[in-house]
Computed example of a mutant assay.
Amino acid sequence: MTDQHVLLIRLAGPLQSWGIAGRFAHRDTHSRPTKSGVIGLCAAALGMDRDEPLGELSEVRYGVRADRPGTRVRDYHTVGGGTFPLRPRDLFLDHQRAAKATAPAPPDVFGDVDLPSWYGSPKYVTTDPASGALVSKEVRRHALITERWYLADAAFLVGLEHADRVLLERVAYALEHPKRLLWLGRKACPPTGDLALDVVRGTLWEAFESHALLPDAVDPQDAMGIRPWAWIESPKPLPGAGMPDQPVRFDADGGVHSLRWEVRHRITITPHAPGWDIIL
């Protein structure tokens, strides 16, 4: 049997958000990091383009241990409504605004003063009485209320299992020397501390059982007796255990994902398991 190796990744921060089905006005978060989100994190660290094939990166076996599950919080958001400064892009993207904004100034308004043509009154554009600057009115009269869900104060230990140790070491190096900005599912959620912890020999189950809880997950004095949940990917289909987060490709339209399967386990961490004091 081919030897397996596991890259252990620490995902912790004030906020995390791992969407599954959220779109537009409702942006959900899963209770734990998704495989698609973590593979996207690794691809960004490696500097891969969105249309670039994921190759072996999508073939890793995925697992996540919830050392501290966190608390779900709802963020109240409003989009649109009010007035906004007139931007150059408004003239490029809206032909009606462009036509109005480039029309000559009416003589009955400005008299004989020779003003540039953009001093006309474009559609949905008015003058801010306070500053006198041109501002663009939103077409919608009422703001759109959106829901955005996050996990607050959570800490997860993610494992990526593969036979190719060199691949995992390359990903580990990239996570600590990323070519692009990294975040925990959404741009408003930067990670804290180190991401890549270690590449260890064995399976996901063995790695989760043989390594202590993350230091920022629980007080070490309270760690005795705690058996965290872990979700480990299954190599074969299982009824009722499907997750629609297997990345096929990433692109500007949200990417393409397929179904994978996973099993939930209670993890009993080996007594006196090595901690992270040296690594962190």
Rank of each mutant, 00 (worst) to 15 (best):
D3H: 14
H5N: 06
L11H: 00
P14C: 06
R23W: 14
H26P: 02
R27W: 03
S31T: 14
T34M: 05
T34L: 09
G37E: 01
I39A: 02
G40V: 02
L41I: 05
A44M: 12
L46N: 05
G47M: 04
E52H: 14
A66I: 02
P69V: 02
G70K: 00
G70F: 01
T71C: 08
T71W: 06
T71N: 14
V73S: 00
R74M: 12
Y76P: 00
P85S: 03
L91H: 02
Q96S: 09
Q96T: 06
R97V: 15
R97C: 10
K100G: 15
T102S: 15
P104S: 08
P104I: 05
F110K: 10
D112E: 15
L115W: 15
P129L: 13
A133S: 14
L134T: 07
K137Q: 12
E138C: 04
R140Q: 10
R148K: 11
L151G: 03
L151I: 06
A154F: 01
L160E: 04
L160H: 00
H162F: 02
A163F: 04
A163S: 08
D164V: 05
D164C: 06
D164F: 03
E169V: 03
R170C: 00
V171N: 02
V171L: 08
A174Y: 05
L175I: 05
H177E: 08
K179L: 13
L181R: 15
L182R: 04
L182N: 04
G185N: 07
R186M: 01
R186Y: 03
P191R: 07
G193D: 01
D194V: 09
G202K: 04
T203Y: 03
P215I: 06
V218K: 11
V218D: 02
R227C: 09
W231A: 07
S234R: 13
P235F: 08
P237Q: 07
L238T: 02
A241D: 09
P244V: 05
D245F: 06
Q246W: 07
D251A: 06
A252K: 10
A252M: 08
V256R: 15
L259E: 11
W261L: 07
H265E: 08
H265M: 10
R266L: 13
R266Y: 06
I267G: 04
I267V: 14
I269C: 03
I269P: 01
T270L: 10
T270K: 14
H272T: 10
A273V: 05
L280Y: 03
